[in-house]
């Protein structure tokens, strides 16, 4: 982000020709427009979440969070993220290894396929599993006969979450590993390390910050996903409601404090994610540079 070249723009003094930057008043106007826009569209929504959550005092807030349904929603969200994030980490590392370390036919096509879930509506991501596992679905009869419950249960929620968070880790690691090249790995191999040792002691330390960055974004989306999970969950209170779904239910029941209390936890998660992400970019900006842009 703040690479040294940008710093060289910094002295916008009279020494610079006025024609290569806007006049002072123009700068002030542009900045004012940008700040008002960001204030209205980003800051106010964030403030109102905490304002509404605490509208009836801290007592009502903690009480809303202590409710059994709220607690079970929190537990389910943590469980779903704890399953789906590691799955996508394993896939992300594996896909990045295959794509970044080797040259093979159809590589560009495979990379495009990995990004596919980003261009599909979350509702459609949920729908595809309903079509597969639902009562009228392709596998519906068989699942029913064998007593396997996927839809309206945890497995369905996990699957939908894995679908929507599929590309996050892979798309951080692929450009990073491509940029780093194969030199380190080839050196390790020539010194007698086996494949696993090369991965553990050479590749993984090289990409750990990029991996963490991807995990962070993947986790934020996994815990916050609404559309896809909403389609497959069945909205069974206390059983298949994740935090975002519980927010919806409370909000539709006009329980504003309850809805915003649970929402405030998700907003805090978002803030923590942003802070960690910014710290990573500041510390390891150069390393992560290749992966920026999402």
């Amino acid at each position: 982000m703040a690479d040294p070249e940008i710093k060289s723009y910094e002295p916008y003094h009279e020494s610079r020709s006025a024609a290569v930057t806007e006049s002072r008043p123009a700068q002030a106007v542009l900045m004012a427009i940008a700040f008002v826009f960001l204030g209205v569209f980003l800051l106010l929504p964030l403030i109102i979440v905490f304002h509404e959550a605490l509208a009836k005092g801290i007592g009502a807030y903690t009480q809303a969070l202590g409710e059994p349904d709220a607690r079970s929603a929190i537990r389910l969200t943590l469980l779903v993220a704890a399953i789906s994030v590691p799955l996508n980490v394993v896939f992300g590392i594996s896909a990045a290894w295959a794509i970044a370390k080797f040259e093979f036919k159809g590589k560009a096509f495979l990379t495009t396929l990995i990004d596919l879930p980003f261009s599909v509506s979350p509702v459609i991501s949920g729908l595809v599993y309903v079509l597969l596992f639902g009562a009228q679905g392709l596998l519906g009869e068989w699942l029913k006969a064998h007593g396997v419950q996927i839809l309206f249960a945890v497995p369905g929620i996990v699957l939908a979450t894995v679908f929507v968070t599929f590309p996050f880790v892979a798309r951080e690691l692929i450009p990073l590993m491509q940029e780093q090249g194969n030199g380190d790995e080839e050196a390790a191999l020539s010194l007698g390390a086996n494949g696993w040792q090369t991965f553990w002691y050479v590749t993984l330390p090289n990409v750990k910050w990029g991996l963490l960055y991807g995990v962070l974004l993947c986790n934020a989306r996994a815990m916050g996903e609404f559309g896809a999970v909403s389609v497959v969950s069945g909205h069974i209170r206390g059983l298949t409601n994740t935090m975002p779904l519980h927010v919806e239910i409370l909000y539709n029941e006009y329980n504003a404090v309850g809805a915003f209390a649970v929402a405030s936890l998700l907003a805090e998660l978002a803030l923590v994610t942003l802070v960690l992400k910014t710290l990573l970019e500041m510390r390891y900006g150069a390393e992560l540079a290749a992966t920026r842009g999402h």
Binding site: E10, M31, L43, I48, V49, P244, A263, L271, V275
Partner: peptide, 30 residues
């Protein structure tokens, strides 16, 4: 990119809020 002002990094980080904030939370807040 072009202007320097105090808190620029915070504003820059804030831009990613919609990526990080769950959509349902954004929905009820808006």
């Amino acid at each position: 990119v072009r202007y320097r002002f105090p808190g620029r990094r915070i504003v820059d980080a804030m831009v990613d809020l919609p990526f990080a904030l769950p959509t349902a939370v954004a929905g009820i807040a808006l």
